[in-house]
Design a protein around this nucleic acid. Structure first.
Lengths: 174, 174
DNA sequence: TTGGAATGTCAACAATGCTGACGTATTCTG
DNA sequence: CAGAATACGTCAGCATTGTTGACATTCCAA
């Protein structure tokens, strides 16, 4: 099979590229996403299973760690789930002493979420495992491929999610 | 990214860009995967919800379409789920007349799975939606980015899944 | 003071994973 | 041929994580 760039090079005799992508290219991309996402979650999932948590707990820990002091509503938007679904996860994390919630100072209705030391420790274990795979993939693929990887993924996001993503990438914390 | 001690002493005017760190690249990749996968599944999910199916039905339809006449065992390996989980999905698809299973010719214990016309139609609707987003992303990102995208995703897969992926890529495009 | 926003909680339900156990048909092997 | 192994289907039960809907509480803002 030709790569897309090879395909493009063959046909690219004019300044205007053909606005056509072979369905095989797209199909391959779809399957790549499917199989890669399985790998992406495999390592944290193993750790989570040992501790009795699920993927939703990982996501909550991750984004609380990423934006310390975030509110429940912010987290809802980022994770794209209902408050009931998040609340169930959040409650167990708070009960287990991994997450701390404090009454907001600017707005006392809000609950500002932070990780405890135990929460930081678990997040680190999960994050280390996931980053190790990402690092291996990035190293194997090379920096140019990594740029392309991020460019395509960003283009695949819903606009609202892209904003979330960019805000996190640029600021690290708002 | 702010540390926790920095967060605790932070006031509203202290926001500043954190220094560029190598781990930030990995973190950004992780979040890109998370947000992009949401976009990746969003369009098919809407169609599936209308029809009363879930993401697992989509996956089954996709890979049966991709490998017509595949067996249940083959599908189990590709999807990475248990036979009980797959069977539940497969049964509804067969009952609803989207999938046909025939007794194997080479080995009569096997069930050879194919899509019916109705199954092909639903798969096409789902596939069209997903491909449209993939096409838009590929077009926006450009051919070099697409190559990098696939390279990194492939490097992120578990070895067994990478074999599956390559087998499908080679066979499906001949 | 009142309306609405933010949050929490309870109940019910659905989709989709899992393990374990069992039955049937078929094929392979000694 | 007898028994082991394989492929598949199914039942039962359970966990995670998503959904709606309803309702109470707290508290900011007009």
């Amino acid at each position: 099979m030709l790569t897309y760039s090879e395909f493009r090079t063959m046909d690219d005799t004019s300044a205007k590229a053909p606005p056509y992508l072979a369905d095989d290219q797209l199909q391959q991309g779809i399957e790549a996403m499917f199989f890669a996402y399985r790998g992406f979650t495999a390592d944290p999932d193993r750790i989570l299973a040992e501790k009795g948590y699920g993927r939703a707990h990982h996501r909550a820990l991750h984004f609380i760690h990423r934006s310390p002091g975030t509110t429940v509503n912010n987290l809802l938007v980022t994770l794209g789930v209902t408050k009931q679904s998040l609340n169930r996860v959040l409650r167990t994390l708070i009960e287990d002493g991994l997450v701390h919630n404090a009454v907001g100072t600017r707005d006392r209705r809000e609950r500002l979420l932070t990780l405890t030391q135990a929460g930081i420790a678990l997040d680190k274990a999960l994050s280390d495992a996931q980053r190790a795979r990402m690092r291996a993939a990035f190293t194997a693929a090379g920096p140019d491929a990594v740029d392309g990887f991020r460019t395509v993924l960003e283009a695949m996001m819903d606009p609202d999610m892209r904003k979330q993503y960019k805000r996190l990438s640029e600021g690290g914390s708002k």
